[in-house]
Design a binder for these strands. Sequence first.
DNA 1: TTGAACTACTTTGTATCCAAAATAGCGCAC
DNA 2: GTGCGCTATTTTGGATACAAAGTAGTTCAA
Lengths: 200, 200
Amino acid sequence: MRKLRPDKNNLHPARMEAALAKPDVEDIAERITQAVMEHRLPPGIKLAEERLASAFGVSRTKIRQALTMLSREGLVKLYPNRGAFVTSPSVQEAIDLFATRRLIEPEIVRNVIARAGKSDLKRLRAHLAAEADARERGDRRAIIKLSGGFHMLLAEVGGNSFIEKLMAELCPLTCLIISLYDAPQTPACPENEHVQIVEA
Amino acid sequence: MRKLRPDKNNLHPARMEAALAKPDVEDIAERITQAVMEHRLPPGIKLAEERLASAFGVSRTKIRQALTMLSREGLVKLYPNRGAFVTSPSVQEAIDLFATRRLIEPEIVRNVIARAGKSDLKRLRAHLAAEADARERGDRRAIIKLSGGFHMLLAEVGGNSFIEKLMAELCPLTCLIISLYDAPQTPACPENEHVQIVEA
DNA sequence: TTGAACTACTTTGTATCCAAAATAGCGCAC
DNA sequence: GTGCGCTATTTTGGATACAAAGTAGTTCAA
């Protein structure tokens, strides 16, 4: 099987800079998503193309592609001739989102219990350790990132690619909803560790 | 509230032609999706940009946007420097897809039962009538379109926008899987009518 | 002071252009 | 005849340029 795209994940650090100099469309979408999850881009903010283009050091062409992708995911909304804005979920959307998560997360956990091998459990535990550590240090940004990451990791171990993809869309939106309707810091789910003890 | 985008759905027929002359990106993505669902674009086929551009009468720019959208939805796969291809789902993906549908469709039905009003039921029944009619006439293309459309309609009436969006992605993929692994004409779900009798 | 209208500027939408990669076609050796 | 390697052509990737739409800023009138 041919290697279809160069893998940027395991590059020598010295090469990293060059890789970051030419981020591809997915990288850009990913970084915007991260920024939203870390509340650096609040709901409703405008994402001007030129601004992003110079920020990422690319032309508007790639930015537009990234925004098109993100709009299809629902993280940004495109208004013709007016530009792209970070989605500002309505109350109804918040309700729908949590209903959807209530539907799929138990399924994920069921799948994890059924499928998880030793290495999976190891990864989960490692993640929880990192999360506890971040909580200890009070590193707010790391906490947010790791908390979302835990759900994503569960979805990955669950093994259903569609559910995983859905979770990848719902997680950032959850962050937006929290910042909109639930300003005080919510300790999303501290008791998930139990789940693992169950399976272990 | 300002009107943000011209609504092409209720145009005078005489204007329709002009509207079709300049299809926007969503239209293009929609039409490609339809073509996949009607098995006019088989799994694995290459979607050359220039070819689509001349077919739709637009430049490659819009086609590329449409393709990036569809790739994010999972209906097409993009291989760098090689182009876009209609997704050819693996066996694992087929399994995942049906597992996901088994998870969300009962939820949809529950929501429909809980929420459906009179006008919703009317629409559902009208749809079933159209479907029965197409089956009567043996209009294969109409059957496929209406069959998928019924599930979409259910999802819409169900009222959860995320589940609706997910169904909009899973439906075309289901068509691909059927054409790949299940060649003989499968009468997907003839007994759904019962569902409605239940609620009525 | 407020509001409407006009103008200047900014930003988006789309096509076109050029470079880089991949594919196909051909010739040559074995 | 088959397979390898080279060149020519096609196709994609990405930036640029220009037109169209929107936004803001200013002036003038009520």
